[in-house]
């Protein structure tokens, strides 16, 4: 806009071309212009590849299968009426909540244990325990898939060895659900561990010393010092992981591909099946849009937590 006015000045007063062009130069050297140019690629990525597709998804979800007619909310209606989709909603929520709770508990426990041992050894243990997080999940799930294989299961071999019967890991709906959760917890718990360990290290030792002198037990120290000090980071991590787990695709795709009988389908895998594999793009878009309200609410709380933390650190 400012460059327009400069151009106008240039056109109206040809005699004053020199001061105007130096004004142009000044404008080009101005902080906000440079800043705008520097952020332009970022703005185009966010605008063109996130905001626009999100809006486009809403539009798509209101078209018919061949994308020729506008049918309003019919896709959402049909989905909510279908038994399969209702089980998808249930399974997604069950999966996300159970997996995140377990990841948080395991991660907290491991971080705590890691914090207790001498600092020298911490690096090595941390290095080993973070390995699941480093391997691309699609590939490590392939290993799990093979470990769960009905006839060659190496996990069943161990279970048999201690005298229990074989488990139909991926064949029976409930066991399939549990398998998906196990793999997700295995993959995600190390992340929680690292986050909590960083938070534990930021709690000043004097607080525990003071509490010990006042006669506090270890449990009381945890309850009244550790948890309150870590509250913010715990909630940020849990909420963030809730988003990622809720929208998870790779583990379900590789491990069960939604089976048996679509009972382990989550939003993402079902959207993929309906939208890409069966070719009903508008309905697939509608499936993934069902995630949006929940994600928006969680994102709001994450942002609040992060802002609060930024203020605390400042």
């Amino acid at each position: 806009m400012a460059s327009d006015s400069n151009a106008a000045v240039l056109a109206a007063r040809p005699a004053a071309a020199r001061p105007a062009s130096s004004a142009m130069k000044r404008f080009a050297r101005r902080r906000s212009t440079i800043a705008f140019l520097m952020t332009l690629p970022l703005i185009s990525v966010i605008g063109g590849l996130v905001v626009w597709p999100a809006g486009y998804a809403i539009y798509l979800s209101m078209l018919n299968r061949r994308q020729t007619a506008f049918i309003g909310l019919e896709n959402f209606d049909i989905l909510l009426d279908s038994e399969t989709f209702r089980s998808v909603i249930w399974q997604s929520c069950f999966f996300a909540i159970t997996a995140v709770l377990l990841k948080a508990l395991v991660g907290f426990w491991l971080a705590h244990m890691l914090h207790h041992i001498p600092t020298k050894g911490q690096r090595m243990w941390r290095g080993m325990l973070l390995v699941p997080w480093v391997i691309p999940p699609a590939l490590s799930t392939l290993g799990w898939w093979w470990m769960f294989d009905p006839s060659y299961s190496s996990i069943n071999y161990l279970i048999n060895a201690i005298g229990f019967p074989s488990v139909p890991w991926l064949g029976e709906p409930w066991w399939a659900r549990i398998s998906v959760i196990i793999v997700n917890v295995w993959y995600g718990a190390p992340f929680f561990m690292i986050m909590y360990l960083a938070a534990l290290k930021s709690v000043p030792d004097q607080l525990y010393e003071a509490a010990a002198i006042d006669g506090a037990t270890g449990w009381q120290g945890l309850r009244h010092i550790t948890l309150p000090m870590m509250q913010n980071i715990i909630s940020i991590t849990v909420l963030f992981s809730l988003i990622v787990t809720f929208a998870n695709y790779d583990i379900v795709r590789v491990l069960t591909n939604g089976g048996p009988r679509d009972l382990t389908q989550v939003f993402a895998s079902y959207a993929f099946q309906v939208g890409v594999l069966s070719g009903n793009i508008p309905r697939g878009a509608a499936v993934s849009l069902f995630m949006f309200p929940l994600l928006a609410v969680i994102a709001y709380f994450v942002l609040r937590g992060v802002n609060k933390r930024t203020k605390e650190m400042a």
């Binding site: 970022l42 966010i46 590849l49 996130v50 597709p53 999100a54 486009y56 998804a57 798509l60 963030f240 988003i243 990622v244 809720f246 929208a247 998870n248 695709y249 939003f267 993402a268 959207a271 993929f272 939208g275 890409v276 793009i281 697939g284 878009a285 993934s288 849009l289 995630m291 949006f292 994600l295 969680i298 994102a299 994450v302 942002l303 992060v306």
Partner: peptide
């Protein structure tokens, strides 16, 4: 906005991006 886009999962956008 940058932080919020970080929170948008890929599985929410892959269908419109498939079209695009």
């Amino acid at each position: 906005g940058v932080f919020l886009t970080y929170l948008v999962p890929d599985t929410l956008l892959f269908i419109p991006l498939y079209q695009i």
